[in-house]
Simulated assay, not measured.
Amino acid sequence: MTNSDVNRKTWLKKIRRVVVKVGSAVLTTADGLNDAAVDRLATQLSALQDRGIEVALVSSGAVAAGRQRICERTKKCRREYKDMASRQAASAIGQGRLMHDYDEAFAKHGKATAQVLLTRSGLKLRSRFLNARNTMERLLEWGVIPIINENDTVSTRELEFGDNDTLGAMCLGLIGADLFVNLTSADGVFDKNPDDNPDAKAIPVIENIAAMDIETMCEGKTLVGSGGMYSKLRAARRAAQLGVPTLIVSGKGEFDLLSAIDGEDRGTFVLPEKRTVSSKKFWMAYHDDPSGTIVVDKGAANALLTKGTSLLPIGISRVDGCFERGALVFIKTLEGDELGVGMTNFSSTELGLIKGRRTSELADILGPVTWDEAVHRDNMLLDAAI
């Protein structure tokens, strides 16, 4: 038995609360929802809860369910909906069908479910995030299994979370989970695309995901599409920063989630990082897409990386983009290397006026100021997995 095997089993023995994400490739066929897959998933998650492990499910499948219902009732059958309005309309039709099927499948095992629809903008305000956390805590306290999906119908960007892997990772901090299970159509992670490379080798354990070049490994993030292995590994890297391990395992066919959680050699187990971030910093870094960039000089970059300091205006060389106070922004070097992200205390216009200036000069330029820091270290996450 290897050290990696021991690590996997050691971590999995401690699990008390888990987020399970299941994608459309597992739940659906070309014709719509796969009832057998829904039943298998409900059976295994119910058994997991019977062990005393609290479960939250992040589920795709609403669009496919909507497409199926449209075809059944109107005979206007289409394989896919590429434009946003059609996808949102199909999701609105299918969400009820999806929840109905889940509710019936879990009811066979005496389990209650709850529908939780989230938007990224809804979690952007810390107060709303905390309110959502309180609601989730109460559901889990009652023994209810929350079934979470993005509220596609009201999302204004396609789609706000981008994929349910990202939503699943956000839910880890939302409920304080200690395991992320990502059920996929693949048997874990491989060193190369197994569809194109017959010699591809499975990776049973990833000990240091931060050291992996996942974009190169997945042949570029733009090529794999929403929900591809790139997004799964990025979500796993985010989970690792929070101190949460990830299990990427096949959910196709007669999958056995319980055996995988018992530590059997199934799929890929991603170990968490030794140095973790707080739930608040995790929320800060990943609640939204960065809306601009602050470019810093070498001295500021070195201070951020080696001394853990805040970013002061004197260390800023350039400001790119247009953003307001409190916006999430990239922090990069003059060479274009990404250092991390942070919430800025000043707008892009204000930063343009005070970049390269000492803190003693800020009031003369802007008038009375509340902060000396452009980005405070408490509102900054270096090496963010954006």
Rank of each mutant, 00 (worst) to 15 (best):
residue 7 N to C: 06
residue 9 K to C: 13
residue 12 L to S: 13
residue 15 I to W: 05
residue 19 V to T: 10
residue 20 V to G: 11
residue 22 V to C: 11
residue 25 A to K: 14
residue 29 T to S: 15
residue 35 D to L: 08
residue 37 A to K: 05
residue 37 A to Q: 11
residue 38 V to G: 01
residue 49 Q to K: 15
residue 53 I to G: 06
residue 55 V to L: 10
residue 56 A to Y: 06
residue 57 L to P: 03
residue 57 L to R: 02
residue 65 A to Q: 09
residue 68 Q to M: 12
residue 69 R to E: 14
residue 69 R to T: 15
residue 73 R to F: 10
residue 74 T to Q: 10
residue 77 C to D: 08
residue 77 C to V: 07
residue 78 R to Q: 12
residue 86 S to W: 02
residue 87 R to M: 14
residue 89 A to D: 11
residue 90 A to C: 13
residue 90 A to I: 10
residue 92 A to V: 10
residue 93 I to P: 05
residue 93 I to L: 14
residue 96 G to K: 02
residue 102 Y to G: 06
residue 105 A to I: 05
residue 111 K to W: 00
residue 117 L to G: 08
residue 119 T to M: 07
residue 122 G to R: 02
residue 123 L to S: 07
residue 123 L to A: 05
residue 124 K to I: 00
residue 135 T to K: 12
residue 136 M to E: 07
residue 142 W to P: 04
residue 143 G to M: 09
residue 144 V to Y: 06
residue 145 I to P: 03
residue 146 P to R: 13
residue 149 N to Q: 03
residue 149 N to A: 09
residue 150 E to N: 05
residue 152 D to E: 08
residue 152 D to Y: 02
residue 154 V to E: 04
residue 156 T to E: 03
residue 165 D to V: 11
residue 167 L to R: 11
residue 178 D to M: 12
residue 180 F to K: 02
residue 190 F to H: 01
residue 191 D to F: 03
residue 197 N to R: 04
residue 199 D to M: 08
residue 201 K to Y: 00
residue 205 V to W: 00
residue 205 V to N: 00
residue 207 E to G: 07
residue 211 A to Y: 11
residue 212 M to R: 13
residue 213 D to S: 07
residue 215 E to I: 04
residue 220 G to K: 06
residue 221 K to T: 07
residue 221 K to I: 02
residue 221 K to R: 15
residue 222 T to D: 13
residue 228 G to T: 07
residue 232 K to G: 06
residue 233 L to Q: 04
residue 233 L to M: 13
residue 234 R to M: 15
residue 237 R to Q: 15
residue 238 R to N: 09
residue 240 A to T: 11
residue 241 Q to N: 10
residue 244 V to P: 01
residue 248 I to G: 00
residue 249 V to C: 01
residue 251 G to V: 02
residue 252 K to Y: 01
residue 255 F to M: 12
residue 256 D to M: 10
residue 258 L to V: 02
residue 260 A to Y: 01
residue 265 D to Q: 12
residue 266 R to Q: 14
residue 269 F to S: 06
residue 270 V to S: 01
residue 277 V to L: 09
residue 281 K to N: 07
residue 282 F to G: 00
residue 285 A to L: 00
residue 289 D to Y: 08
residue 290 P to D: 07
residue 291 S to A: 12
residue 292 G to D: 04
residue 293 T to M: 11
residue 294 I to Q: 03
residue 294 I to D: 05
residue 296 V to Y: 05
residue 296 V to I: 12
residue 306 T to W: 01
residue 308 G to V: 02
residue 309 T to S: 15
residue 310 S to P: 04
residue 313 P to Y: 01
residue 313 P to I: 05
residue 313 P to A: 13
residue 315 G to H: 03
residue 316 I to M: 08
residue 322 C to G: 10
residue 323 F to V: 02
residue 328 L to H: 06
residue 329 V to D: 09
residue 329 V to Q: 08
residue 334 L to D: 14
residue 337 D to W: 01
residue 338 E to V: 15
residue 341 V to H: 04
residue 342 G to R: 13
residue 346 F to N: 09
residue 346 F to V: 09
residue 348 S to F: 07
residue 349 T to F: 11
residue 349 T to W: 08
residue 350 E to K: 11
residue 351 L to W: 05
residue 351 L to R: 09
residue 351 L to T: 09
residue 359 T to Q: 08
residue 359 T to W: 05
residue 365 I to G: 10
residue 365 I to E: 10
residue 366 L to T: 04
residue 369 V to E: 08
residue 372 D to A: 13
residue 374 A to P: 12
residue 377 R to F: 01
residue 384 A to W: 01
